[in-house]
Design a protein around this nucleic acid. Structure first.
Length: 475
RNA sequence: GGCGAGUUGGCGGAAUGGCUACGCAACGGAUUGCAAAUCCGUACCAUACCGGUUCGAAUCCGGUACUCGCCUCCA
């Protein structure tokens, strides 16, 4: 099956063909770990997770290498750790490690709730500092970088193609520059490869003194080590195109002039809230964790994120949440009696995904399967897209069926007051009961965290037992 | 100011020249102990605007308006 992907480097949709037929290599910029991931951070994770799944399907699971890095060297992390370290008595170094480890744990938890698989490799920048130093040395030796005032800077004029990835000219960028240029820069667009650390900040020994790497070189070094000089796909949010990806590409091309670095660049659009980009600095963000706490299922978020084409901006609204919930509830009802593994992903869904991840089109195909009553295909295809996957607490299904048995008895002796109460209580626990001709059926509504669901169900069961006991005594 | 993306019914959102998908929401009826689901029906009579090419345009070309993103840390 052929996959077409939009290449933001060329501005065209291109047929995807890996550089090596036996190996598909993809690098995506991952989180900077200092805080909870918001729904905007989740978008690339979900989008490229779906691409990962599609590539694995097309090229074989073992052939696809997906690297999503973890940026754990960053001044935002240092600042956050400093706030926490003050007064705690811990060293800054220990606090940084604690913050980054904890945030990585949160990230995995939240992405897991969204049905995001772990990538093949998840390198931490702190484990690749020596590779970064090597690359910086090579760039200096090749005349693409210079040392100034304890910093090492990339010399943008030494790379005439600078700007070609984001397709903008140096002149335009200079005209629009809004930021004060550091005095040690020879040219205003030059960017930091290495910067000095004072004794309080984390630092590594280098030929230029104790310091830490700039953000852009982290990705260049990690992709080089894990994927090689040339690889197939580089992804990330559209806000990273400039300067992050432009700089990354410049460094890597200059360090390895004979290689192609990333052939295909993919950028997802931004998530907006009330017409504004969701971002930490604007403070208008919704974290995945917070939404889970409020009872929103991870798959509901995933559904919304995939409901708009990845290159488009996406508006996060209450209305879309309602729609997602309603559709997923419906699909759960339709697929409640089928095993998803019986069928593969439907061809129509795959065709849509293979066309530059046309997820809205794929959703339509899912709706068509639902309308045609192809429940097994719907279950399998939805599962392929990472939907209808939520695991239920152990023992829940058994207890629910016990309750429904009692409820059916109540209904058959027309004790509707009790049977309606049971239905309401179950609904409250995320279990939707529907009465068909003979007996009732139920499906599980997607919920945020399932904590407490089992407890609620057990409470219903308990109340029924108490009631039965008192009736037995009374009778 | 530069660069880029976009504007399709109440909402979301496909479709790159051939009767404008699909979903959500709404309304009426059947059905139901009540709900839900299902079935039947209704309505919203949608391609930002102006011009061009064409037998035929949401789609191609030119222009206008508006929205958003990037140019600064950002997914």
């Amino acid at each position: 099956m052929k996959i077409a992907l939009w290449n933001s480097r060329t501005g065209r949709k291109e047929e995807f063909e890996p550089l090596r037929p036996d190996r598909v290599r993809m690098y995506v910029c991952g989180p900077t770990v200092y805080d909870r991931a918001h729904i905007g951070n989740a978008r690339p994770a979900v989008v490229f997770d779906l691409l990962f799944k599609l590539l694995r399907h097309c090229f074989g699971e073992a052939q696809v290498v997906y690297v999503r890095n973890i940026t754990d060297i960053d001044d935002k992390i240092n600042n956050r750790a400093r706030e926490l370290a003050d007064g705690s008595g811990d060293s800054l170094r220990a606090t940084i490690r604690r913050v980054t480890d904890e945030t990585i744990g949160w990230f995995h938890e939240d992405m897991g709730a969204l049905g995001v698989m772990l990538p093949t490799h998840e390198p931490r920048a702190t484990d690749y500092v020596s590779e970064m130093i090597e690359m910086i040395k090579a760039l200096i030796a090749a005349g693409h970088a210079y040392v100034a005032d304890g910093h090492v800077l990339f010399d943008t004029p030494s790379y005439p193609q600078y700007g070609s990835l984001s397709r903008r000219s140096l002149k335009d960028m200079q005209a629009g520059a809004r930021v004060e240029v550091a005095p040690y820069k020879a040219n205003e667009l030059d960017f930091v490869l290495w910067k000095p650390s004072d004794s309080t900040l984390p630092g590594w020994d280098s030929p230029w003194g104790r310091g830490r790497p700039g953000w852009h070189i982290e990705c260049s070094a990690m992709s080089l080590k894990l994927l090689g000089e040339s690889f197939d796909i580089h992804g990330g949010g559209s806000d990273l195109l400039f300067p992050h990806h432009e700089n990354e590409a410049a460094q890597s091309f200059c360090a390895h002039p004979d290689a192609s670095f990333a052939r295909l660049w993919m950028h997802n659009g931004m998530v907006r809230v009330n017409g504004q980009k969701m971002s930490k600095s604007l403070g208008n963000f919704l974290t995945v964790s917070e939404l889970l706490d409020r009872g929103m299922a991870g798959e509901t978020m995933r559904f919304i994120l995939l409901g708009t084409h990845y290159r488009q901006q996406l508006d996060w609204t209450a209305r879309r949440v309602e729609e997602a919930r309603s559709v997923l509830g419906e699909w759960r009802r339709i697929t409640r009696d089928v095993a998803a593994d019986d069928a593969g992903c439907h061809r129509d869904v795959l065709d849509m995904l293979a066309d530059d991840l046309n997820t809205p089109g794929a959703m339509s195909a899912l709706h068509r399967l639902a309308a045609q009553g192809c429940s097994a295909e719907l279950a399998a295809s939805a599962k392929f897209m990472g939907l209808l996957n939520s695991a239920l607490p152990d023992g829940l299904a058994g207890r629910v069926s016990e309750i429904l048995k009692v409820r059916d008895q109540m209904r058959s002796c027309r004790n509707f007051a009790v049977s309606d109460t049971i239905r309401d209580s179950l609904q409250d626990a995320g279990i939707v009961v529907q009465d068909t001709a003979g007996r009732s059926k139920c499906h599980f509504e997607p919920m945020g965290r399932y904590d407490g669901q089992l407890a609620k169900v057990e409470k219903v069961l308990e109340e029924l037992e108490v009631m039965a006991a008192s009736e037995a005594r009374g009778g």
